[in-house]
């Protein structure tokens, strides 16, 4: 079972290493990880998608809370999740194929970020499943390179994690 864990940490050097090290040595698997500063520049947010049972999740939360640099840990419930990944996909694209790709981009609400004689680079920010669908649509053209961030996530509605 996949879990989205949002962690607020002190924005210090070495904090990511502590968090990542904890996952590694306790045998918790990380599927995706994203780090960025929050509205308070002294605080960073680490969003981790981890795989595991309810027991693993409980242990992850408890062990993370023991790290002195960890301010808050929150397991975001799937049903209330606003989650996004960003992907850049460079596909082969002959001049004659441009119109087709532009229409795929429009349907998927992707941006054309770059273009060259034989390639086109598309940019999409969306949920993991929609990004996967998008990738499948582009595959027939020949994907030359994919760059993808980890998921960032937030709880829907008025509640905030501070």
């Amino acid at each position: 079972m996949k879990h989205t864990i949002s962690i607020l940490v002190e924005n210090h050097a070495g904090v990511l290493a502590r968090v990542a090290g904890l996952f590694a040595r306790r045998g918790f698997n990380i599927d995706s990880l994203a780090v960025g500063v929050t509205e308070d520049e002294k605080v960073s947010r680490i969003t981790i998608i981890a795989d595991g049972t309810a027991y693993t999740l409980e242990q992850i939360e408890k062990q993370l809370n023991k790290l002195i640099d960890v301010i808050k840990v929150r397991h975001l419930p799937t049903e209330e999740l606003l989650s996004r990944e960003l992907v850049l996909i460079k596909v082969s694209c002959l001049p004659s194929q441009r119109a087709e790709l532009i229409s795929i981009a429009e349907i998927a609400k992707a941006k054309i970020s770059d273009i060259s004689v034989n390639t086109m680079t598309l940019e999409l920010s969306d949920s993991v499943s929609r990004i996967k669908t998008f990738e499948e649509l582009l595959r027939p053209y020949g994907i030359k390179e994919t760059v993808r961030t980890g998921s960032i996530a937030m709880q829907k509605g008025g509640a905030s994690m501070k």
């Binding site: 050097a13 070495g14 290493a17 502590r18 090290g21 040595r25 002195i68």
Partner: peptide, 16 residues
């Protein structure tokens, strides 16, 4: 040493 000892410390500081 802060890296090497990380799994065994309650906390550590590399003072900068």
């Amino acid at each position: 040493i802060t890296g090497a000892a990380e799994p065994f410390v309650k906390h550590s500081y590399l003072v900068k």
